[in-house]
């Protein structure tokens, strides 16, 4: 397999690495960089467990939301990537994380990282997103434990905090 030298900026940290050209972003982040806050589940972009944000100027927030299992790491060369592991700042949880804790939106927790990143992205685009918008936005992220009720409640709570913070 062809190798490629790339640079990734993950949650602000710079990583200069050599990757196989066919390796996905999930594989590289988890297996090479050992950043296991990013979870791997279906590997084919169906469940959303590996959701991350990637810098992209074409979007109003400057970030695009993707399934990292569907992106090749080699194609992310030079990009800034944001995973759930980078949301906590100086020991303080992000409002979305805080709301997930408070609302009891976490059960087994395996989908939580991806679910939180998707929620962050929905709310960064529109902190005043209503219930229908939140539910539709979360469609690509599967949770088998919660029935989504408390996740949606958490998103609404975080939206209020984020709207007030702007």
């Amino acid at each position: 397999m062809k190798k490629r030298a790339i640079t990734l900026f993950i949650n602000g940290d710079e990583y200069n690495i050599t990757v196989d050209a066919d390796e996905t972003l999930t594989q590289v982040i988890r297996n090479q960089l050992n950043l296991t806050d990013l979870k791997h589940c279906c590997g084919r972009g169906e469940c959303g467990a590996c959701t991350v944000q990637v810098e992209d100027d074409r979007y109003p927030t400057g970030k695009k939301i993707i399934n990292s299992c569907l992106s090749l790491a080699a194609m992310m060369d030079g990009k800034r990537i944001y995973t759930v592991g980078g949301l906590e700042k100086g020991g303080t949880l992000h409002p979305v994380q805080e709301a997930f804790v408070e609302q009891g939106a976490v059960q087994c927790g395996f989908c939580s990282g991806g679910m939180i990143m998707k929620t962050v992205d929905i709310l960064e685009n529109n902190a005043k997103a209503g219930e229908a918008e939140i539910r539709e936005g979360l469609e690509g992220n599967i949770c088998r434990c919660t029935g989504y009720t408390k996740i949606v409640e958490a998103a609404k709570q975080a939206g209020k905090v984020m709207a007030a913070g702007k």
Binding site: T36, L38, T83, L87, L93, V101, V106, G109, S112
Partner: peptide
């Protein structure tokens, strides 16, 4: 929940 924080931080 006792395990909530470790789960929301990954």
């Amino acid at each position: 929940k006792l395990d909530a924080r470790e789960k929301v931080t990954g």
